[in-house]
């Protein structure tokens, strides 16, 4: 007769222990950003200071890496939004030859290990004599960002009733008007959420980037260099904290956008 709603103590301990394991290392990042210790990862920190935040803000190399990362993430997100939405529109609303292949194709760049995507793009670039630039980074990033936008958009297209589009056109709207006034408002929050996730994914990506970046330094590449050969631990601590904030805030925003977006016009029939 186990009809009570209380959990067994062992399960509770294991669950909260697991949660602690997941969250404690991230909390540590926030503590270390304020540590006065410069040369080692000493615990507990001997003292706390705001000095390193100021030092990091004055670092030109950090700002340049940050600017490149934002630029790459922004362009990749826009490309992913266009390609992902077009593909989602086709897959969600019609049946055609090769439909299954296309939905598999979109998932492939994140289903295969990143190193495979990275090395094959790199050898393709060298085969075609394309020099490394910001655009080669963007090409790699957009490839795996498409699926994020696609997933969000395809779910929304399936919920948006096709009758809405038919009605708009029956009432005399042309294709452009239908898109602007009926389709776009319906899928807008899904695209915003997908775009934010794609931005966060691109902003953080390092494995494909090491193969397609040449000599350019994005923020994750800057971090990777610091991890392999630590030169300025206090600055790295602050950058790590900043990166957590930049990637996590869009995630939380995307969560709230899609959470309330379950009821879309025309979906109730």
């Amino acid at each position: 007769m186990h009809s009570d709603n209380r959990s067994p103590l062992a399960l509770k301990l294991a669950a909260f222990g697991g949660l602690f394991f997941l969250l404690a290392p991230i909390a540590l990042i926030f503590l270390y950003a304020f540590s006065t210790e410069e040369k080692s990862f000493q615990w507990p920190p001997p003292g706390y200071t705001l000095k390193w935040i100021g030092v990091t803000l004055g670092r030109a190399d950090v700002w340049e890496a940050m600017a490149l990362s934002v630029k790459v993430a922004a362009i990749s997100t826009i490309l992913a939004l266009i390609l992902g939405t077009l593909t989602a529109a086709a897959v969600a609303r019609s049946k055609f030859f090769g439909r299954e292949t296309i939905s598999l194709l979109v998932i492939l760049p994140i289903a295969l290990p990143g190193i495979i995507t990275g090395i094959s793009l790199r050898s393709a670039f060298s085969l075609l004599d394309i020099p490394f630039s910001t655009w080669t980074i963007v090409l790699g990033h957009a490839t795996f960002c498409i699926v994020i936008v696609y997933n969000n958009a395809v779910a929304r297209f399936r919920r948006t009733s096709g009758a809405l589009i038919d009605a708009a056109m029956d009432l005399g709207a042309d294709g452009v008007q239908t898109f602007r006034l009926v389709i776009l408002p319906n899928i807008a929050t899904a695209l915003l959420a997908g775009g934010m996730l794609a931005f966060a994914l691109s902003f953080d990506e390092v494995i494909v980037t090491t193969f397609t970046a040449g000599n350019q330094t994005t923020l994750p590449i800057w971090m990777l260099e610091e991890l392999v050969r630590p030169r300025q631990r206090p600055v790295t601590n602050v950058v790590a904290m900043a990166v957590v904030l930049v990637t996590v805030l869009p995630i939380l925003a995307a969560y709230y956008l899609t959470k309330d977006g379950e009821h879309t016009a025309g979906s109730d029939k």
């Binding site: 953080d204 971090m223 790590a240 990166v243």
Partner: peptide, 14 residues
């Protein structure tokens, strides 16, 4: 969703 490298870095601290 936290940065992959930041997570590796956190474990370097740990």
């Amino acid at each position: 969703w936290s940065s992959y490298l930041v997570k590796v870095y956190a474990w370097k601290l740990v």
